[in-house]
Design a protein around this nucleic acid. Structure first.
Lengths: 123, 123
DNA sequence: CAGGTTATCGCAAGTTCTCGCAATAGCGGC
DNA sequence: GCCGCTATTGCGAGAACTTGCGATAACCTG
């Protein structure tokens, strides 16, 4: 556990959840400008391998990072207005069970948000 | 419908499905090197707005493009071995209905692959 | 605690995709 | 066909990562 790795973890601790790697890099570099962004990116991956952090995919492009100990949950993202909504994993579990029994596939349904049109944007 | 747009559509027609924008740009530029990659990217978006093409997200990072007239289906991607498996949308429909009635959310369950561990990689 | 092995770091260059802008091509009305 | 308007293009710059590499720090092992 190096200094750099500690700083990445601290920044992640401070930001409540769903932070981008870029944002973390910015925070770390605000206090320690000599730390390279690539170090932050690499440490997020390393910390994920070690089980300290996880990432999810909310909207189409950016990866969001958070501590591994926060409660897991699903996401609904509206493709029209961009709103993000959290839903309990319980809602997704029936599908998880089905994929497990029918395909032998162990789905991680919290990993990617479900894209669609939210109630407010529906015609 | 400009020449460039036609070429992008043709390249997409030729590649069976799940092509990357980068690959399409490469193909188009093989014959017409003066066409800029940014034009390809912009045209994929434009063609999507026009309803000719769609994109999905398979593994974590790259966007995959395909013609809009191919049958829609879900994807299971193994995070360990990277294998991709197609599943009928029918399997995902119960969840779609549930999100619709409980949250008023119209989910597009073909848009993002479901990530997990496939049968072969399971311990 | 010295010596060697391995992991990690900072830097620089490379990828892939995005954006702003001036030039231009397509297109409808005359 | 010509004119003017708008959409589209190529180009250059830039954002957001990724990768290769030599230097350095961490960590065994005796």
């Amino acid at each position: 556990m190096t200094v750099q790795r500690r700083l990445v973890l601290d920044a992640l601790q401070r930001a409540r959840h769903h932070t981008t790697a870029d944002e973390i890099a910015r925070q770390v570099r605000a206090r320690h400008p000599q730390i390279d962004p690539s170090t932050v990116y690499r440490n997020l991956e390393a910390l994920e391998d070690l089980g300290y952090v996880t990432h999810t995919h909310l909207d189409d492009r950016v990866t969001r990072w958070h501590r591994a100990d926060v409660e897991r949950h699903g996401h609904l993202v509206c493709r029209r207005c961009g709103s993000e909504q959290e839903i309990p994993l319980r809602t997704l579990e029936p599908l998880g069970r089905r994929l497990r029994t029918e395909q032998g596939f162990r789905a991680d349904l919290a990993h990617s948000a479900i894209v669609g049109i939210c109630r407010e944007c529906a015609p």
